[in-house]
């Protein structure tokens, strides 16, 4: 099933994403930031659906919005935020940071204006019905080794997180 009204939804969703992103980096209250980030992530999941990647969209919702962000909210509630909310929000190197970001933005603009011809006009439309099966075949076939390393990474991360957060080991 092909996406309907692509331009409309693209602009709507990218608008939501950008506003969400701006809110993430400007809000004083980390909880508000987290909620804005969740909105951004959900909008991005919808964009994945428009890009014929339903499985990635599903993983995005479950893992990002359902898992990682709940973890974030949990930690924000655990540490007290009252003090840091009253303090200065931007660090002393913000001028340097902004100029670096501006330079990076300039770089992006330069690259994209120069190289926009190499992208084909009409993106391919892919078969969506067996997307999950194909991704699975790839994950467990071609990328088997990478998959195993990723699971190892997760294991290390779990142990690391436990070690970090534990009072006494």
């Amino acid at each position: 099933m092909a996406p309907v009204a692509t331009p409309f939804f693209f602009y709507l969703l990218s608008g939501i994403m950008l506003i969400g992103g701006i809110l993430v980096i400007t809000r004083k209250n980390p909880v508000h930031s987290a909620l804005a980030l969740i909105v951004t992530l959900l909008a991005q999941a919808s964009i994945y659906l428009m890009l014929y990647a339903p499985f990635v969209a599903g993983v995005q919702i479950i893992l990002y919005a359902g898992g990682i962000m709940v973890l974030f909210l949990f930690v924000i509630m655990l540490v007290s935020i009252e003090r840091s909310m009253k303090e200065r929000q931007f660090n002393s190197q913000w001028v340097v940071g902004m100029s670096a970001a501006t330079a990076l933005g300039g770089l992006f603009i330069a690259v994209y204006t120069k190289g926009k011809d190499i992208f084909p006009d009409h993106a391919l439309s892919m078969v969506e019905d067996d997307n999950t099966q194909k991704v699975a075949t790839m994950l467990y076939g071609q990328y088997m080794f990478a998959f195993e390393i990723a699971s190892l990474l997760l294991l290390v991360a779990i142990i690391g997180a436990v070690v970090m957060a534990k009072k006494r080991i």
Binding site: P54, I62, A65, G66, M69, L73, E128, T132
Partner: peptide, 19 residues
């Protein structure tokens, strides 16, 4: 295509509302 994944994902979003 991702029906069950969608169901699990969206129903787990409700915890966000609770939090």
């Amino acid at each position: 295509n991702i029906g069950i994944l969608f169901m699990l994902g969206v129903s787990s979003l409700s915890v966000l509302g609770i939090v």
